[in-house]
């Protein structure tokens, strides 16, 4: 469904992504694991196209010079130079790190903003669906999103991404700052989304243990390079990976 090849991103002279190749098949969940500064978020920015926006902003500001190279194909179409909003229209939706909700809007408003491109009927159906997989949100709909707890915010953020009718959902560190209980809730939801909505999901995380049971395939990144890839089982059995990413 989505295949990226030879992705390279430079922030000024620093190499943030070094020749990364990522594939995600239809209806697959793909995991990307790595420590801080491994390049996970940059990879997400590159896939969703946000990097092009960052690049333009930095250029206007006279700040860092960002260089993006490589090829991204989506449904057989080259989308490497496509602006982020056009990629979102094609169904690539990013749920960014640290949720980035609109803090002064209520939860329901956040969800409705997410549904900007959806038809009225799709929006209504997806809203019901989001409340079904995240029941705690029902009681919070009128609350300003900025006042929710971390876990509640994450549900709202994933909900907002779903409202945009994704065909490929990019989840950037969805478990950041969540308690193990909430991590379980979010991961169950991700699994459920894949099964009921038939969409593909790429999820990044630092700590692989809660995520690995639900992924079909996973990549491990270090300092901007892809060091290893395999199915969840293969990675679990590898002693190096075990030591580094599972805390054993």
């Amino acid at each position: 469904m989505l295949a990226a090849e030879g992705l390279m991103v430079f922030y000024e002279n620093m190499l943030a992504l070094n020749n990364i190749a990522v594939r995600c098949g239809a209806n697959q969940i793909v995991g990307v694991f790595g420590a801080n500064s491994a390049g996970k978020s940059t990879l997400m920015y590159a896939l969703s196209g946000i990097i092009l926006d960052l690049k333009e902003k930095e250029r206007m500001r006279g700040g860092e010079q960002i260089t993006v190279l490589g090829k991204i194909t989506y449904d057989g179409r080259e989308i490497g130079t496509l602006k982020p909003h056009l990629r979102a229209r094609l169904g690539i939706v990013l749920c960014p790190e640290r949720r980035r909700l609109f803090p002064e809007s209520s939860v329901i408003e956040n969800l409705k903003i997410g549904a900007f491109m959806a038809s009225r009927r799709q929006a209504r159906e997806t809203l019901d669906y989001v409340l079904e997989i995240f029941p705690p949100l029902k009681k919070l709909l009128r609350r300003p999103a900025g006042f929710l707890s971390g876990g509640e915010q994450q549900m709202a953020a994933i909900g907002r991404a779903l409202m945009a009718q994704p065909r490929l959902l990019l989840l950037d560190e969805p478990l950041l700052g969540l308690s193990p209980a909430y991590q379980q809730v979010v991961m169950e939801a991700v699994k459920l989304i894949r099964e009921t909505k038939k969409i593909s999901i790429i999820v990044t995380e630092q700590y692989a243990r809660p995520v690995i049971p639900i992924v079909d395939y996973a990549y491990i990144m270090e300092n901007g390079s892809g060091v290893m890839s395999g199915t969840g089982r293969e990675l679990l059995d590898n002693p190096d990976v075990k030591a580094a990413y599972f805390g054993v």
Binding site: G6, F10, E12, N13, T67, V68, L69, K71
Partner: peptide, 11 residues
């Protein structure tokens, strides 16, 4: 996307 070359800034 251009491939192969990038503009580098050096002090």
């Amino acid at each position: 996307m251009k491939t192969g070359k990038r503009r580098e800034r050096i002090d």
